[in-house]
Amino acid sequence: MEHYKMNLTLRIWRQKNSETKGRFETYKIEDISSEMSFLEMMDVLNEKLIREGQEPVAFDHDCREGICGTCSMFINGRPHGPWHANTTCQLHMRAYQDGDTITVEPWRANAFPVLKDLIVDRSAFDRIIQAGGYISVNTGNAVEANSILVPKDQADSSFAAAACIGCGACVAACKNSSAMLFVSAKVSHLALLPQGYPERKTRALNMIAQMDKEGFGSCTNTQACESVCPKEISMTNIAKLNSEFILAGLSD
């Protein structure tokens, strides 16, 4: 792929902390390589801001290889930018052309309050996991993996759900700020395995109760979440969560 350089205009949401009101700031940035990642471009911007004595833009990042779920930017109207099944850190500047204007916003949801600039507080997801996203096992020696048989198709479905990295793009994309895709991925991942089976009822009920408590909206099946998910988590999981929830509610 041909290498090129570009000059860009960035409109970035700046907000001092969760108490203050934020606003967009416009920055001009030059000589950006098409081979840079989006976050490297942000690094270049921050170095420039530091040199100029300005506060750098705060943004979340960690692994920068698309597996940790830390990066979170709403880029030109889409979580994680324009590429399908991709995280912000894996977005490359070849997605853009010289002269482009890029608008970068934080995830927007009451349940994800802005902490600073582009960083939001996603601890609501942690509390949902604490409410039931686990299995209870006795500690001790690791048991032989093949002593519990798992049908291949169920293992595959469970793994596909387990691929969720908890980035929150589903919430950011949903018109209702619903966390159903995230919760459904976690519930399906465990409910499909024999190890997760015993606690499936309380898990579905407790995780949904915590989700509501955190202030996420309801699912109206618009499918926006599925279309932006960097790990292509399927809406099938939401139907699975609904059936888990209904059956748990009826039998308890």
């Binding site: 409109r11 109207g77 889409r78 916003e105 499918q223």
Partner: peptide, 9 residues
């Protein structure tokens, strides 16, 4: 400021 709109649903 820029919404997802018809790109997702």
């Amino acid at each position: 400021a820029v919404s997802l709109g018809n790109k997702g649903s």
